[in-house]
Amino acid sequence: MNQDKKVIEVRDMVKKFGDFTANDHLTFDVSEGEIFGFLGANGAGKTTALRILCGLSLPTSGEIRVAGYNIYTDREKIKKSIGYMSQKFSLYEDLKVYENIRFYAGIYGLGRKYIKERTEQLLERLRLQDVRNKLITELPLGWRQKLAFSVAIFHQPRIVFLDEPTGGVDPVTRRQFWDLIYQASHDGITVFVTTHYMDEAEYCDRVSIMDAGKIEAIDSPGGLKSTYNAKNMDEVFLSIAR
């Protein structure tokens, strides 16, 4: 992690829907290569913030830069600099494994020869060579999620946003997924992740916890545990969000 280099800078971000304030003056930074856990109860405003940071929605006010680009004027550049994956939607089920990779890589404008080489490397690394011609629906969920993550960072984005990436995944695969996250972070990709698994919060460099539109706490897992005098992140979360 390179703490001198901020890839996400958020100052006083506000998002209102009519009278309802979904994001109430959020202020935080995320460093290059950092694994940043973005936690909060259902309805706390996480998805709203995530959509703004991905360039899909504009805030009501606030100064926000993602990958160095201004959220108001350079949203197309932001989209090219980030990757995104969620549990709900990740890959096209009626495309084959290699077709999914080619499709995503193509969207980001990568060259044909380059895509071909990197696809081979990726399939080998994930040990998916034998299933390259299978439809996504034929893969077990865990394999799909690992592939989806690799596809989301195929274009080597500065930041990857992961929205509950491990929901419903078996415990072994869930950990293999985190191995991929660590690897990406090691390679300098910033990982911005939401999860309902509190043990996964411990794997993050820093964690923020939202409640009712505000960031109530932001620190390393160790720092949060000592501030809230808690033995694990589950207790920290419960004392903030309950």
Partner: peptide, 10 residues
């Protein structure tokens, strides 16, 4: 409790 936050789960 799938997709439900830790507080509601509890």
């Amino acid at each position: 409790t799938t997709g439900v936050d830790a507080v509601s789960r509890k």
